[in-house]
Nucleic acid binder design. Structure first.
Lengths: 344, 344
DNA sequence: ATAAATTATTTAAACGTTTAAATTTTTTAT
DNA sequence: ATAAAAAATTTAAACGTTTAAATAATTTAT
């Protein structure tokens, strides 16, 4: 079955191609098309079940109405949440999402940037990987608008939607301190990613403000390798609990780390919150099946995704200027932090 | 900065556009381009940082090298797992993924089919929604190849990658029976979706084969509305546990149902497996943070995603014929099923 | 030295749209 | 009845590629 094009509709309605184009694009009155002719054209289009070829349109208009989305890993709860919001908002704004995942690998990221620009996406939403600054510079050179999500590079001037990680981390730590915790461990990835470092900073600042002296071995650093995350967390926590270091609480800097930690605690029969308090950055819905609900900070994923699209579309259509938007996290109180600890 | 096209490269190298096209598409020898000329062209292309316009290419070749992926909800563990595998394999096959989510709504699904076909995707991978058979027929009419994943329609002849749901459900039920369970409840969505009905069938067949008389109130049916899933599961389980019906085990037909169930059991302080055994279809990694590991059937998500792409690409390129592939689930034994029950 | 064969390169049409400019038809004014 | 104005429609070029066919340049055979 041959594809139906404007030409076919034109023939069927007995008019020229351009008239069909005008009518089907809602320019009927502006171009002074006779009512009757317009009607005939529309009927013909319907009869033939005409479908515009968006590829041809894109070529002519140098506008694809598509945005590239590059995520770091769709299996992160953060990513699927934000992806969902992005797709929904994109639909609302009449854009289609072209999807790619770097899986935290630079080479895959570079490849995606390449393919997406060749595909002439109108813009990009990017959860970047470590060490991809050069690629972002490239995009700027090409004049392709993009917005970063979650992860920020200080030395790159771009639009950005993310969390106020410093504040969120500060608040979470403060929450623990106010409950009387003193020896607060912090489990984070060892990384150059700014947003994760901000969490360190928030944690340490809270300790400082409350006159708790931070001890270097309170920081449990995990290599950022998804495959053996659990082993690494186990190793880090063993270092605390096997050696019976004094520890009131462990604050996990991400949901995935927390999951590993909780698994560890179950295995070692360490009771939450009796033996140790637990705080998590980010959440899985499934936290709710832990025997005690986990206190955690919650990011407004839906809002972030929506804002990312809105900002990008603005950049694309209004040629607006880039900006940083940082949102606040909510602290969702569970039962994983011991209350009324004796202040020593 | 103006976009560099073949024309610019041609000018720079002092040759015609077609020669550039030949060389850059690896047809240099076939078209007998002089070695030296070819070299000059390649250099020019590099110098100017030429990037082919894939839109123009698509138009000319009537081939977009893109596949549409329509999921039902990216927040399902099943979906993100399979999406990950699909994107990876698509990359390997030189296809880009255009992503859309129906969020289980027919109207969104229809809209996506429309946009994707207008975008001239080469094919589609679809996790369909209830009642979208007409749309699949449309696709067949257009001659656009597609493969269904997870969910199957009996009355539609299409390629399909999914699980042997009947067998998986049968095996899980059998597992419970063999541990001595008699009163086995089954919690499933109330749905017309074939793959979920197959799970019912497997459950019932196992009971039958082991001469356990199925009682209608063992089937806990949950309306398929994500928003108030928890309330509905609670309601269903209350009907069992508040009324103190005799119940050895509850078999949840999906991971999301299981999560709700586990939450309920925690709230009501019903102990697993002491008070009741739990079996789940599908898993979340986070099952591992439940106080006892949950026995469940595991679908080979990665394999499914990979196969979906392979099958589709085959359909697209080799004009191969559609086929059904059903894979087997693994039963992952946890600690949520009581052992050595007295056979009454 | 010339024709034929081979090698190398260019021309031009096409893919399905959009749209400015040109043209034809109809209406209005005289 | 005719000119001018307005309304309706068509023509043709363009977007950036690919590729068959035409042409030009070089080599080989006579």
């Amino acid at each position: 079955m041959k594809k139906i094009g404007l030409k076919d509709v034109a023939n069927s309605a007995g008019v020229s191609i351009s008239l069909v184009s005008y009518v089907l694009n809602g320019q009927a009155v502006q171009k002074k098309v006779k009512k009757e002719t317009a009607k005939r054209i529309i009927e013909a289009a319907n009869n033939l079940n005409y479908k515009p070829d968006l590829i041809a349109k894109s070529l002519k208009m140098s506008k694809t109405h598509s945005i590239g989305l590059i995520v770091a890993d769709i299996d992160y709860r953060y990513t699927s949440g934000i992806t969902k919001a992005i797709e929904e908002e994109a639909k609302r704004c009449n854009y289609t999402v072209i999807y790619g995942s770097s899986n935290e690998r630079r080479d895959a990221f570079v490849e995606l940037i390449n393919v997406f620009t060749n595909r002439r996406v109108d813009g990009l939403i990017i959860i970047p990987v470590e060490g991809c600054e050069d690629q972002l510079h490239l995009l700027q050179g090409y004049g392709i608008p993009y917005v970063l999500v979650d992860r920020l590079f200080k030395n790159i001037d771009s639009s950005y939607i993310g969390l106020d990680n410093f504040q969120a981390s500060y608040n979470a730590t403060e929450y623990l301190i106010k409950l009387g915790h003193k020896k607060i461990f912090f489990c984070n990835y060892h990384t150059t990613l700014f947003h994760l470092q901000e969490r360190n900073r928030g944690y340490k600042k809270a300790l400082l403000d409350y006159k708790i002296k931070f001890k270097p071995d309170w920081l449990i650093e995990i290599p950022n390798i998804p495959e053996d995350r659990y082993e690494n967390v186990t190793h880090g926590l063993n270092d605390v609990f096997e050696k019976k270091k004094e520890c009131d609480a462990v604050f996990f800097a991400s949901d995935n780390l927390a999951i590993c930690g909780l698994k560890y605690f179950i295995e070692k029969q360490i009771r939450i919150p009796d033996d140790v308090s637990v705080m998590s950055f980010d959440e899985y819905d499934e936290f709710e099946i832990f025997y005690c609900s986990i206190t955690h900070s919650r990011q407004p994923l839906k809002e972030m995704g929506t804002l990312a699209v809105k900002t990008l579309v603005n950049l694309i259509e209004k040629r607006g200027v880039g900006k940083h938007i940082t949102l606040k996290a909510d602290l969702v109180a569970g039962k994983s932090c011991k209350e009324g600890m004796i202040s020593v």
